[in-house]
């Protein structure tokens, strides 16, 4: 029973981080029809910025929102200077379909190299601000610790804010409209290009939060070559695809499914199989139900 509870808690806390990553990919996909593979690099960069801010200010609670703001600014910068030029230049010819994808890949490489230049290839340590020793109930120690609880709570709060933003405000309406039908949105007076940049900025903030929370909830070690962040990208992508790559609730649902399945594999079968299971899940899903579970059915595919 306690093993099952552990599995559930591991799954939920992993899922909360995957869902941030998935949300940032979905937002970018919705606003520019690009899957941003540089998201892993951006999350890693934010983790490093978080580390620098913590060592300067000495306070994690200031560093987290600051790093999210910086992440948003960086993401908007990328959209404004790289993606706009790119979509304008390579809009025709056989390269058009793959140019943005390849550009984000290049961006991932550039970020990795720059991180290596600045912080070197050794680990730096971002200490968790809360205890990571699990709560005890009676004789058993649960898996969940104050840190993990904070991660789950913080992500739920962020999801709440994003939902309010998208459903109850004019900006949210503009974001949804320009994702759904850019030309009609433009005709109704929405400044689509600005809204796109805003979409990227929100995605950048979510990705930054994912990067920092993943670090403090894990070992705390940050390394430019870390496999952990590359896997975070893969799992975020899989979660987004489960949800249909279009829908924000879908991304959260996908992250929950993926987190629980992977936690189940890790506890009951073997930790070495986690990646293989995730990959097979992705393949099976893409073959059986490529539109995801909450995505739109008809061809709004690039």
């Amino acid at each position: 029973m306690s093993q099952f509870l552990d599995m559930f808690l591991i799954g939920i806390s992993a899922a909360s981080i995957y869902s941030l990553m998935a949300i940032s990919m979905v937002l970018v996909w919705r606003s520019t029809r690009v899957v941003n593979f540089a998201q892993a690099g951006m999350a890693l960069l934010s983790a490093y910025i978080g580390y620098e801010l913590v060592s300067r200010t000495g306070n994690f609670w200031i560093a987290l929102p600051l790093a999210m703001i910086l992440g948003a600014a960086f993401s908007a910068f990328i959209e404004f200077f790289l993606m706009r030029t790119l979509l304008k230049n390579s809009s025709q010819g056989p390269i058009a379909a793959i140019a943005p994808i390849i550009a984000t890949l290049g961006l991932l490489g550039v970020i990795h190299a720059v991180l290596g230049f600045i912080w070197g290839h050794g680990d730096v340590q971002l200490e968790a601000p809360l205890s990571k020793v699990g709560y005890t109930v009676g004789d058993t120690t649960l898996f969940i610790a104050p840190m993990g609880l904070f991660v789950i709570g913080f992500v739920i709060a962020l999801l709440f804010v994003v939902t309010i933003l998208f459903q109850k405000t004019n900006i949210g309406l503009a974001l949804r409209a320009s994702a759904y039908a850019p030309e009609i949105a433009q005709l109704s007076g929405v400044r689509v290009s600005g809204i796109r940049t805003l979409g990227w900025a929100i995605a950048g903030a979510a990705g930054a939060a994912a990067g920092i929370l993943q670090t403090v909830n894990g070992t705390g070690a940050i390394n430019p070559d870390s496999l952990e962040f590359s896997l975070l990208l893969v799992f975020g992508f899989i979660a987004a695809v489960i949800g249909g790559l279009e829908s924000l609730p879908g991304a959260v649902l996908g992250a929950l499914i993926l987190g629980l399945v992977l936690a189940f594999v890790q506890i009951y079968i073997s930790g070495t199989l986690v990646f293989i299971v995730a990959f097979l899940l992705l393949l099976a899903l893409l073959i059986l139900r490529p539109q995801g579970f909450l995505g739109s059915k008809v061809g709004r595919r690039a």
Binding site: I101, L282, L286, R301
Partner: peptide, 17 residues
């Protein structure tokens, strides 16, 4: 059966994993 971004993500996942 996959198009652009899905195929790109799948192959990238393979290279990472």
């Amino acid at each position: 059966r996959l198009s652009g971004p899905y195929l790109a993500g799948t192959t990238l996942a393979l290279a990472i994993g």
